[in-house]
C-alpha cells in the first residue's frame, strides 16, 4: 500500500490540521509516513502545499514525484490547479469551491471549473457552507478531509479517531462539530 497526497491551500488556511489527522491515523496504523510542509515566508498568505506520503513499506523521498499523486486535496479551487502536474493517471482531485482572492488577476470561477473538469471527475465541495451546517465555518477543513477520505487509503473511523485525538483538548463541542463536518464531507464522496 502506498498513497501520495498533495494538500493545497493558502498560507493561514490550515491545511496542516488536515495533514495532522491523516498523519495521526497512519502512525496508529503502523504505516510509514513522510509529510513535507511549508514554513516561513509563504505562510503569510502565499500558496502553500504539503506533500504527504504513507506506505506499508520504506519511503525514501519527502517529496512526491510528478505524475504520481493519488489525491490532490485542496481547500481553495485555484490552488487545486497549481498541482495538476503531480496528479497520477487515475488520481483524484477533491477541492473546496470558495475562492480566496488576495492577489490581482484571480481568474473567473467558470474558467477554474472548466480546468478542473479536465482533471477527471473532481469532487467539488461547498466546504464553508457545509461546515456551517455542521456547527462552525471553521470546520471546513474537516469537511474537506471527509470528502477526501475515501482516497487516502485509511478507514474513515481511523481518521475520526485522529480528529478525536487532535481536537480533544479543545473540548467535546469542538470535537463533535469537527466529526459532524468530517461525516458530511465523507457523504459527498460516497454518494
Amino acid at each position: 500500500m502506498q498513497k501520495n497526497i498533495i494538500l493545497a491551500g493558502v498560507g493561514g488556511q490550515g491545511i496542516l490540521s488536515i495533514a495532522a489527522v491523516i498523519d495521526w491515523a497512519a502512525l496508529h496504523e503502523g504505516l510509514n509516513i513522510r509529510q513535507a510542509e511549508v514554513h516561513g515566508m509563504s505562510q503569510r498568505g502565499g500558496a502553500v502545499q504539503s506533500h504527504l506520503r504513507i506506505a506499508d513499506h520504506e519511503l525514501f523521498a519527502d517529496l512526491i514525484a510528478l505524475g504520481t499523486a493519488d489525491l490532490i486535496l485542496s481547500v481553495e479551487p485555484l490552488e487545486a490547479l497549481r498541482y495538476l502536474p503531480w496528479l497520477a493517471p487515475g488520481g483524484h482531485v477533491v477541492t473546496a469551491l470558495e475562492p480566496f482572492v488576495n492577489m490581482p488577476g484571480y481568474p473567473p470561477m467558470e474558467e477554474i471549473l472548466a480546468e478542473l473538469g479536465k482533471a477527471g471527475r473532481p469532487v467539488q465541495v461547498h466546504a464553508a457552507e457545509i461546515a456551517r451546517e455542521a456547527g462552525s465555518a471553521r470546520a471546513s477543513n474537516m469537511v474537506m478531509l471527509g470528502a477526501g477520505a475515501p482516497f487516502t487509503g485509511i478507514a474513515p473511523e481511523k481518521l475520526e479517531a485522529g480528529i478525536e485525538a487532535l481536537f480533544g483538548a479543545k473540548g467535546r463541542d469542538i470535537v463533535d462539530i469537527n466529526i459532524r463536518a468530517f461525516r458530511k464531507g465523507l457523504e459527498l464522496s460516497n454518494t
Binding site: 515566508m41 498568505g45 500558496a47 490547479l81 492577489m103 477554474i112 480546468e115
Partner: peptide, 20 residues
C-alpha cells in the same frame, strides 16, 4: 524517460506572500 505530465493551466497566477 519520464512520461509527460499535465501542465499547470495558464490561468493559474502566482500567489506571493503578503503582509497580514
Amino acid at each position: 524517460e519520464l512520461p509527460e505530465t499535465a501542465a499547470v493551466p495558464g490561468i493559474v497566477v502566482n500567489r506571493p506572500p503578503e503582509l497580514c
